[in-house]
């Protein structure tokens, strides 16, 4: 019984010995964390520098960076005006494309029309100049970041949405719309662009008149997208800037695509 407190004290004393010199700590957005974990894994294999990635939300990324607990914070949005003390390094973008089947004659819908479809106010394609057929509304399951982004953009709450089909993964959404002339859905924009390019019978609808293309997203014009940032405070250390260069190298684009993100083009 006496040994235990001694052990705990010894462990606490050990804690005083600082962390390794050649290591980086990155904390923040749970959307970016898995991607960053994988990039960090590659970086460690290549350079031997230890990179610890911690999740917990964009807000935590910002506060940890401010307190000096993290070398980088992961923030899945643009920095706000009051966060001007931090520097944002754009690493990629995440966005949503509204998709319909390529055989559907409807080529554009405005935001109000999309809201009307998703709330069940309009149930037939004929209202938008399409076929006289019922609209099959494909919606994402709770907790998916794509769903949050979609609801936020259209000012909807989830209980107002009247879906015909609820899906989880992006691939499911692609299949649902590619296989049904009367379906409408939304998936991560990276997925939609790759699948359409690969020949899936999909049409990406423009949003607020902006076509859903790689270029528009890249230039930040496409409305339904968000920035994926690493934020830092003050001068970047050598280790930090080397890591940043590594993860934004075009050679790493494949990993971004695996997470349906668009890497920033250099």
């Amino acid at each position: 019984m006496i040994k235990l407190p001694v052990l705990v004290m010894a462990l606490l004393a050990l804690a005083g010995c600082g962390t390794r010199e050649d290591s980086l700590v990155i904390t923040g957005s749970s959307t970016i964390a898995p991607l960053m974990t994988e990039l960090a894994e590659r970086y460690e294999e290549t350079t031997g520098v230890q990179v610890d990635v911690q999740s917990g939300g964009s807000g935590r990324g910002i506060s940890d960076t401010r307190q000096g607990l993290a070398d980088f914070g992961m923030v899945s949005r643009a920095l706000k005006a009051e966060e001007g003390d931090l520097t944002a390094h754009l690493i990629g973008r995440d966005g949503i494309a509204m998709i319909v089947n390529a055989l559907n004659p409807v080529t554009r819908l405005n935001d109000a029309q999309i809201v009307a479809i998703y709330t069940g106010e309009q149930q037939s394609w004929s209202a938008f100049g399409g076929n006289d057929a019922a609209i099959n509304v494909v919606h994402k399951a709770d907790g998916r970041s794509t769903q949050e982004l979609f609801l936020e953009h259209f000012g909807l709450s989830n209980d107002r949405v009247k879906p015909d089909m609820v899906i989880g993964e992006n691939q499911q959404g692609i299949k649902a719309v590619a296989g049904d002339v009367n379906a409408i859905g939304y998936v991560s924009i990276g997925t939609a662009i790759y699948e359409a390019d690969a020949g899936a019978p999909l049409r990406l609808l423009p949003l607020s008149g902006v076509p859903a293309t790689l270029e528009q997203v890249d230039q930040g014009h496409y409305p339904l997208s968000r920035e994926l940032n690493l934020v830092s405070q003050g001068e970047l250390s050598d280790a930090a800037s080397e890591f940043l260069a590594f993860i934004t190298d075009p050679g790493q684009a494949g990993i971004y695509h695996d997470y349906y993100f668009l890497p920033v083009s250099r």
Binding site: S30, T31, P34, V53, Q54, S55, R144, Y259
Partner: peptide
């Protein structure tokens, strides 16, 4: 959240429950 095998009690290490949550919610 770190996936590495911990070398000491002072290393970060991910528990099974955290892993389940992250795989189900954040990893395609």
């Amino acid at each position: 959240y770190v996936l590495r095998r911990p070398d000491s009690l002072l290393d970060s290490g991910r528990a099974l429950s955290v892993h389940i949550y992250d795989l189900a919610m954040n990893v395609p």
